[in-house]
Design a binder for these strands. Structure first.
Length: 416
RNA sequence: GCGGUAUUGGUGAAGUGAUUAACACGCCAGAUUGUGGCUCUGGUAUGCGUGGGUUUGAUUCCCACAUACCGCCCCA
């Protein structure tokens, strides 16, 4: 028997309802903020992710699904969306506009060891905004993430923010941290020794070294921001206060991807079912990325969140109660096939409708009624066909009414 | 990629080196051929993740592989 590939899942039943609910909620919600839906390719040239996400990241180093297509091209299944959205922005020359706001919703792929809340094919929803560099915009994106999640009924959220500063601040900070860690080099874990050269910021984020006091007391990026970066960060915080978004500044928050600058943030949930996979949303500002991918220098800001983790919470909190709303169940007690015509007619008129196809007797048909819980039950037997009427039973009041066949649609319209 | 635990029907599961693999839910049929969700009766794994091995005999022991979950790592 062929099984589904490792780290993938079939989504059906209640899960599928929750998934579709989130999807349509997303469309409505993003419309409120005037973000436009964008659908980008599931795979791109491998190089895009190398340059966009960053060669020093694990995502690109060892977690991508790479393949060579029949034309000999190196391709990669998208491990995230930002690089692809930026590529689209540049390729379609959206930079002729003052501002571009996009949102996306779809699968991303990472070759990882699966665990709960961590899949090889997983679903991300996210936004990217290009053009203006405004603290209000950073705050909009953060508040959007927060309100999106609370709008889904998720209550136990916390927002963490930090600033990495601009390029100048970051370079200066890198020197400071390297100097600070010079004496501690031998105590660092192997990955952090490597990080010291490539991306020293990440050491603060290390689960192992990050727990040691020496690292906890290490210089923080926010202490080495230049005046401009410092002011920008202050303005973001002010804007968040203005919007009444609760947040905490977490100086050790640096995010794993290379492209971030200035504002970085995460939204985490503290419900135990998520375990360690409790980061619902991660994002920030990436002012250098468009330029890095051969576009004109353009500021950008965005985030991504994981739908599967959101689904876990929604189900746990019972924030979403799925309802089967079948309008009508049709019972056929004669064999002219007339009942099937009625079903077709009802569906054409916008009523959700079901009928039995397995030739059940009365008992079995009523069992189906119990299962589907329709609003109305139509009984079509020989008497009805002969008399040109249909017996309509209201499943709430249990009252039965004889309705002329030609007046059935009107009757249901008035009573449903 | 490293370490650990697990894998029995549609589902939740009990169980044993050798006769019919418990129990419960679900599903199917009947009691009840024009009114149900209750009850009762019967049916429902030629099989115990896959492939090897040990054995007179393995679902039970051993090995490998696969998958799931937990920890590490990483992140959504």
């Amino acid at each position: 028997m062929i099984q589904k590939p490792k780290g993938t899942q079939d989504v059906f039943g209640v899960d599928a309802q929750v998934y579709k609910y989130i999807e349509s909620y997303t469309d409505n919600f993003m419309n409120l903020y005037n973000y436009g839906y964008i659908k980008i390719p599931t795979f791109e040239e491998t190089n895009l992710f190398y340059r966009g996400v960053g060669e020093s990241t694990d995502i690109v180093n060892k977690e991508t699904y790479d393949f060579v297509d029949k034309g000999g091209r190196n391709m990669t299944l998208r491990p995230e969306f930002t690089a692809g959205v930026v590529r689209n922005y540049i390729e379609n020359k959206f930079y002729s506009e003052q501002i571009s706001k996009f949102y996306y919703f779809g699968s991303a792929f990472r070759y990882e060891r699966p665990q709960s809340g961590r899949l090889r094919e997983f679903t991300q929803v996210g936004v990217e905004v290009f053009g203006p560099k405004s603290a209000y915009l950073d705050a909009e994106v953060i508040s959007l993430a927060y309100r999106y999640l609370s709008g889904l009924g998720i209550t136990n959220l916390s927002v963490k923010i930090n600033s990495l500063g601009d390029k100048e601040s970051r370079l200066r900070y890198n020197e400071v941290i390297r100097e600070y860690l010079k004496n501690d080099y031998d105590n660092l874990c192997d990955t952090c020794k490597d990080r010291l050269n490539k991306n020293p910021l990440r050491i603060l984020d290390c689960k192992y070294d990050g727990e040691r006091d020496y690292i906890k007391n290490a210089p923080k990026t926010i202490d080495y921001l230049n005046d401009e970066s410092k002011e920008y960060f202050e303005n973001v915080k002010k804007a968040l206060d203005l919007l009444d978004i609760p947040y905490t500044v977490d100086a050790s928050l640096v995010r794993g991807l290379d492209y971030y600058s200035h504002t970085v943030f995460e939204v985490v949930s503290n419900i135990p079912e998520l375990g360690k996979a409790n980061t619902l949303c991660g994002g920030g500002r990436y002012d250098g990325l468009v330029e890095m991918l051969d576009g004109p220098s353009t500021p950008g800001v965005g985030f991504a969140m994981g739908i599967e983790r959101i689904m876990t919470i929604i189900k746990e909190l019972e924030a979403f109660i799925p309802k089967d709303t079948l309008d009508v169940f049709v019972m056929s007690l004669e064999d002219s096939g007339f009942a099937y015509q009625v079903v077709d007619d009802l569906r054409s008129n916008g009523f959700s409708c079901e009928i039995d196809y397995t030739g059940k007797n009365m008992k079995g048909l009523w069992k189906l009624v119990s299962k589907y819980e329709p609003c109305f039950i139509l009984i079509i037997g020989e008497d009805e066909v002969k008399g040109d009427y249909i017996t309509v039973k209201d499943n709430n009041t249990k009252e039965e009414t004889k309705v002329k066949t030609s007046e059935l649609i009107d009757y249901l319209d008035m009573n449903i």
